[in-house]
Each structure stands twice: as C-alpha cells, then as structure tokens.
Design a protein around this nucleic acid. Sequence first.
DNA 1: GTTGACCTTTACGGAAACGTAAAGTAAGCG
DNA 2: CGCTTACTTTACGTTTCCGTAAAGGTCAAC
Lengths: 132, 132
Amino acid sequence: MLQHKTHYSIGELCDEFGVTARALRFYEDEELIAPERRGTQRLYTDRDRARLAWILRGKRVGLSLAEIKELLDLYDIGDGRRTQRLKTVERCQARVDSLRRQQIDIDATIKELEGFINLVKAQDSEQSAQEK
Amino acid sequence: MLQHKTHYSIGELCDEFGVTARALRFYEDEELIAPERRGTQRLYTDRDRARLAWILRGKRVGLSLAEIKELLDLYDIGDGRRTQRLKTVERCQARVDSLRRQQIDIDATIKELEGFINLVKAQDSEQSAQEK
DNA sequence: GTTGACCTTTACGGAAACGTAAAGTAAGCG
DNA sequence: CGCTTACTTTACGTTTCCGTAAAGGTCAAC
C-alpha cells in the first residue's frame, strides 16, 4: 500500500507550496500552525500540511492572516458548547457572505476588463483595415 | 431635465463613497486620480468619480493600488500605436485570468466553509436531541 | 469681525506580512 | 576531522495604505 509521508521538514513544505521558511515560521509565530519538534527542528504533520494549504488559499482570496487564524480556530472548536457553536456558525456565515460579495465585484471587474479588451481589439482591426 | 452635478468637493466624494479625505489625497499622490483645482481646493469631475469607483472596486477584489493604477493607465491609452495596444490587451488578459483563478479559490473556500457550517449545525441538532 | 465648517500641506506613526542579514547548531559525508 | 547542507533564533529593514496630529487658509454666516 502506497503510504505518503507523515512528517515533513520545513524545507519540504517550502518546496511543495512555494513559500519561504521565513513565512512558515511567521505563521507559527502568529499561531496559525504549531508543528512538533524533534530537538530544535520543526516536524510538520499532515494536519499542519492541510492547515498550510488552507492558509495559502485564504491568502489568495484576500483574507488576512488574522482572519484565517480565526477560521482555523473555529474549525478546531467543533466541540465547545452550544452558544459557542452558534457563534462559530455565525462567524463562518459572515465570511461566506463577504466572499459572495467579493465574487460579485470580481465578476463586474472581469466583465469591465473584457469589455475594454474587446474595444481595443476592435480598434486594432479597424486600423489594420486602414493600413491596407 | 434632471442633470446631476458635474463637480464634487472632496467632502462630497468622501460621503458618497465612504472613504476619508486622506485616502483620496493619497490616491492623488499616487497618481490614480488628478482632480482639477479651483484655487487650492480640489474639484472632482464625473470622470474622477468613475475612476474612484473603479479604484474602490479594485481594492475590494484584492488589487493593489499599483495594479489598479496600471489598469487605469491602460484605459487611458486606448489610442497609442499597435504594439502598445497589443500589450494593453495582454496585460488586461493576464489580470482577467488571475481574477478567474481567484474566483475558483473563493468558490472552494465558500464550499469548505459551508460544509463546515453544516457539520456544526448537524452536531448541534444532535445535541439538542440528546437534551430532550 | 469672529466663529465655524471645510479645505489645504507637511510629516511622523503604525499595522501587516514578510525579507534579509547575522550568527550559531546538528547531522551526514568523505 | 572538516566541510556542506539544512536548520535554528534574533532582530532590524521594507513595502503598502493610509491614520493622525499640527498648523494654517478660505469663505459664508451670524
């Protein structure tokens, strides 16, 4: 059975995700990941790896590290008591709503850019017609 | 005929768009807008107003002011010569592609968050069933 | 004529997200 | 043993996007 590694060094994760070690250590400082240690070296587990993937995607969609941390923390408190869980759902829902609004803005921006692209292209074929 | 204003003070624009005067002056410093002057006061035209709207939406979708400036500048060089226009199209297209990738990331993030929300909700109704 | 609202410039301050240099440790290899 | 490579910590530097005084100009209203 092909079993993938269960532990990664900082360098391995850097290569895999295309980030610097500095960034990983920074995320650790900010408590977004908490790798184990073998002596002084960091040992990242699959869980850390998954969290890192989450972090990076969060960044790509424009979340701040603080926001990402909040969501990751929420993920970890699936247990907690009732009021706690309701708050969790609330916060997540708010984020979803915000992302939805962002989708709309991005849609509009794409459309505007494409409209402009077509305009410039049209102007271009106009001129190449003149140039005959 | 109802004709809307053709000039706005800095305060009016601030109120309308919910930004500070500091921000508008900063955008001007960075050459994203260039309002006229009546003496020392800034007079924003409809064009400035439209550019500001563009800037703010750009920000909401995660573009830096530098990126926004580049796109706004491209808008202004619809003329230029052929190679110039081709470059314009290229740069715009790259932005569109990047925004498309961002859409995908946002989609995934939303789905993940909603999955988690449902999970927590399920866990919640489970417990309220137990509590009977 | 002075008060108040709104505007101006200049300039220092500050959070976010790392970059980057400095200096040291730990392990494997010939 | 010395060398290399990968790792460590500490700490100051950098960029972006403004916030926040400080100090003053302008113009209408009372």
